[in-house]
């Protein structure tokens, strides 16, 4: 079946595995975990000034389901605006896959991680506030 093929492909060949510089101003980091299964996931987004997600990387220590959903999520958010990315719900994926929404904690990790990463980015920007204008002027 087509749906599982796509996901299984992500499971076997995860995309976007790695790290971005967590101290960079244009990078937001989300670190989440599922105590039910003990999985941890770090997801990072590189975001342009106009709020476009330019790159996404993740590192997951957990089961195949967590890896597949992280990989899938990073593919999805790339090229989207942060507002669009915030609208991603795992239920959407589930719906598209026509699967029963079995409660698998690790598969909702990606959704939480995206939210956290964007919040982290926004926090960084707020902190910088007016300083940012000067920097752009200098460059």
């Amino acid at each position: 079946m087509a749906y599982s093929k796509k996901v299984i492909d992500h499971y076997e060949n995860p995309r976007n595995v790695g790290s971005l510089d967590k101290d960079a101003d244009d990078v937001g980091t989300g670190l989440v975990g599922a105590p039910e299964c003990g999985d941890v996931m770090k997801l990072q987004l590189k975001i342009s000034d106009d709020g476009m997600i330019e790159d996404a990387k993740f590192k997951t220590f957990g089961c195949g389901s967590a890896i597949a959903s992280s990989s899938l999520a990073t593919e999805w958010v790339k090229g989207k605006t942060i507002d669009e990315a915030l609208e991603i719900r795992n239920t959407e994926i589930v719906e598209e896959l026509a699967l029963p929404p079995v409660k698998i904690h690790c598969s909702v990790l990606a959704e939480d991680a995206i939210k956290q990463a964007i919040e982290d980015y926004k926090r960084k920007r707020e902190k910088k506030g007016g300083v940012q204008q000067e920097e752009t002027a200098e460059a």
Binding site: L31, V32, G33, A34, P35, V40, K42, F61
Partner: peptide
């Protein structure tokens, strides 16, 4: 039950575990 939201997993625990994993 676990508290809802971000406090569900204490951030320092996640940090500790993630670093150990890496």
């Amino acid at each position: 039950e676990r508290p809802d939201g971000e406090a569900k997993c204490p951030p320092d625990l996640l940090m500790e575990v993630f670093e150990l994993r890496e």
